[in-house]
Amino acid sequence: MSVLVNKDSKVIVQGFTGSEGTFHAGQMIEYGTNVVGGVTPGKGGQTHLDRPVFNTVTEAVKEKGANVSIIFVPPAFAADAIMEAAEAGIQVIICITEGIPTKDMVAVKEYLSDKDVRLIGPNCPGVITADEAKIGIMPGFIFKKGRVGIVSKSGTLTYEAADQVVKAGLGISTAIGIGGDPIIGTTTKEAVELFMNDPETDAIVMIGEIGGSMEANAARWIKENGTKPVVGFIAGQTAPKGRKMGHAGAIVGGADDTAQAKMKIMEECGITVAKSPADIGKKVAEALSVNA
């Protein structure tokens, strides 16, 4: 058992032969991820990184039993790639691509709504289950095996949190980077729910940013259904109102989506909030020792 991906996941890479796809597929294979092949339309039949290249996702599913896909195709074609994977029966689709037009993602969300498939991202670092499968662009060595789950909107801040958890003497079960775009496949609440149901996870780190209501929704769900300690951090306490800070999602809009408002809601819902990003590891260790 683990969340979303494990050593038995049969992974294909869409955009396999491109420069990003090649580099990160190589890193994933080196980590020990079970990469069974890749898809690049028009290059079917070739071999790349000692693995077969297919023209379509359907072929990869049929020939190799692929059930997880990671997408590195350029933004103009990424929505199409997600829908192709879903249509072919892939169960977990992880889209790394940054810069997909929102209109395309409105269509993708609708297309996936009646299918039994989970999309992570887009514009995310991916998912890693420590020592089993790295399906993303994160540096694998930071994620020492353990029993803390991480869900985060941002890439390097996920690494920072994982590193602190490890330095506090603990480790990571799975880390999920859900992405920072206006429309994403899996919300904070859904990721938290996966961890609550995972017997290999004892505590959860939830990292958010200013903008939107995902952390507040997750916090309210945790208040009703939570069974494990949760430590939260919201980046952007000092971000000025109304300015875009890199992520399309990181826009301060109304009164409820400031970092301060979110932290208040999280605290009211029983989440341990780290005010400083330097305290995430320490707070997790404290939360686990209180509950032990």
């Binding site: 985060s152 909107k153 941002s154 890439g155 390097t156 801040l157 996920t158 920072e160 920072g180 990292i207 940013e209 200013i210 951090f233 980046a235 952007g236 306490q237 000092t238 971000a239 800070m245 890199g246 992520h247 990181a250 970092a259 005010k275 400083s276 990003p277 330097a278």
Partner: peptide
């Protein structure tokens, strides 16, 4: 000067703290 938007905002926060 930071790599990544989320970590950059967290770094701004730590400057304030």
């Amino acid at each position: 000067m930071v790599n990544g938007a989320g970590l950059a905002m967290a770094t701004m926060d730590i400057i304030k703290l």
